[in-house]
Design a protein around this nucleic acid. Sequence first.
DNA 1: CGATTTATTCTACGCATGTTGAATAATGCC
DNA 2: GGCATTATTCAACATGCGTAGAATAAATCG
Lengths: 209, 209
Amino acid sequence: MVAKTSPGRPKASSQNRRDQISKVAARLFSDLGYEKTTIRLVADEAGVDPKLVMHYFGNKQRLFVATMKVPSEVHAALTLLKLTPKASWGNRIADVIWLAQKSSAIETLVGVIRASSSEPEAAEMFREFYLENLLLPMVSQLDVDHREIRAVMMSSLMAGYVFTTQIVGLADYLKLDSKKTKKLFASLVQTILTSEIGKTSAKTKRANS
Amino acid sequence: MVAKTSPGRPKASSQNRRDQISKVAARLFSDLGYEKTTIRLVADEAGVDPKLVMHYFGNKQRLFVATMKVPSEVHAALTLLKLTPKASWGNRIADVIWLAQKSSAIETLVGVIRASSSEPEAAEMFREFYLENLLLPMVSQLDVDHREIRAVMMSSLMAGYVFTTQIVGLADYLKLDSKKTKKLFASLVQTILTSEIGKTSAKTKRANS
DNA sequence: CGATTTATTCTACGCATGTTGAATAATGCC
DNA sequence: GGCATTATTCAACATGCGTAGAATAAATCG
């Protein structure tokens, strides 16, 4: 807890303060989930008064939305794969995720996944930001059938890997070899994107339970 | 909200009451997550007084643990694959998961995954129940290298698929063809269990970041 | 039948949370 | 230089939560 000053506008600061709060909030949402990330805690760790958080972001939900935007680098990296040859897609996508894992870019994904487990609105954000704006367009770049099934499986693999490593912490617990894990991960992505699934027929479409 | 009776021991009931509370709690933990599943809500939906829940289960955490045990059928189905030929493992495991999805057996997995996102103790339960007691033994039945990496990927795929379908609800949203989704899922399990990963050497083991 | 145990309810305490109202002081604009 | 705006703090309200105490009545056991 940083020492607070007296009320009133301070000599020199301002827009940095908003970013500072935003960064702290992103880290806490990612580490603790939505409900355990309280406004008071964010304020404390940012060294400001809780009301200042409300002043900048309105309410907790808007703080979450503002903080959990998909980083533009990740978005760009995943939607600009057009030039990569089909056979390298698995490796390329694994590269992006392994890179994000080492930066703070992963925080937004972890935060949204954690929050989705308790807040339906966050699950909606996941659907919109990650499925519709990221994975479906990505799959659609490859000329392949059953795009939605493949995108949902990409979502499953990504979210599950994040869950297992970042939330349950299994990779650290078992001290896995990162290179080999990445190799298997890339194989799975490749399988998702290129595996033969079967023709779409009215018959099989009807058997939908 | 069922009408409550006056205090005192009723004419005929008892052990059913505990099971009744347990079932309601399982459904709510699965649907709402840990924090939003309040003792009062469980009590209301079971038609009893909140204190009765405490009477039977002690506190909320113990209610969760008692309710979220892995169903024995699923455990048996996944750890008794010895006789299945290696090439059919993917399909066999997909069968088990698709079956669980249609019963209430999936509730415990969804509940633990949801809770893991906010309660570290639940993440610990996931590690113990699902990784150590279910997936690692399962993988160990197959004579294959890198068991831990494969088990962690199994965990990722399972948890991610549950997250995507049950928590985000993407499969319903996109109205996916269940048979074809299952086919891709089975291919992925097969890849996890049989894909070539690479020899374990001191060199690659050291490059662990 | 009397005593103990068990099943059940009602009431309430203490705490943490999101959010608000009012106050204060520095800044930017005319 | 005065005035509105902005940045910031403090204090407080209402709500919902997990949990505990005490009471009541049926069942069980001697």
